[in-house]
Amino acid sequence: MVSKKSKTWHWSQDVHQLFKKIGIKQVAYVPDGGLAKLLERCQADKSMRSVVLTTEEEGVAQMAGAWLGGQRGVLLTQSGGVGNCINMLSMMQECRIPLLSLVSMRGEWGETFPWQVPMGQSTIPALEAAKVIVHHVDQAEKVPETVQAAAKLAFDANRAVAVVISQRISGSGSKG
């Protein structure tokens, strides 16, 4: 069910609350405009450790370590960073370690910047080739419930899962 949301509502509010509820303690990311509000909420929250990475693959390795050490984490990345992660994702597959990641898309809905298109169009095929389960979402109201479903699949069924958030929601790079 999608509830009616106020005009000031942003999906990041509910997703941040969900992170708290399910016990996310490590938030690893390379910044992106589409994730900026969520990153701000996580950074301001002392119950979780926000870690800025030099490249997204560091975060995949960190998430494996978080699980090995008994904590839950989430990796936040733009679609452009997904290509950097492929080899590290072999750890999730070989060890069946949970991974929850949120990927904000570029190079997709209404993109005007040509250099974003190649990786944007490769993002979902690349994730799937690395055996990451993809949940694509293109309505803001559905982001929280999609993240919640992905978190169950990740942490309860020990799977690598990416919630791919459409550029249709963020509007990043689509205004010319």
């Binding site: 390795a61 960190q62 370590g65 978080a66 750890m91």
Partner: peptide
């Protein structure tokens, strides 16, 4: 970075 994740946890 795997070790870093363990170290935080």
């Amino acid at each position: 970075m795997v070790a870093f994740g363990v170290a935080l946890a």
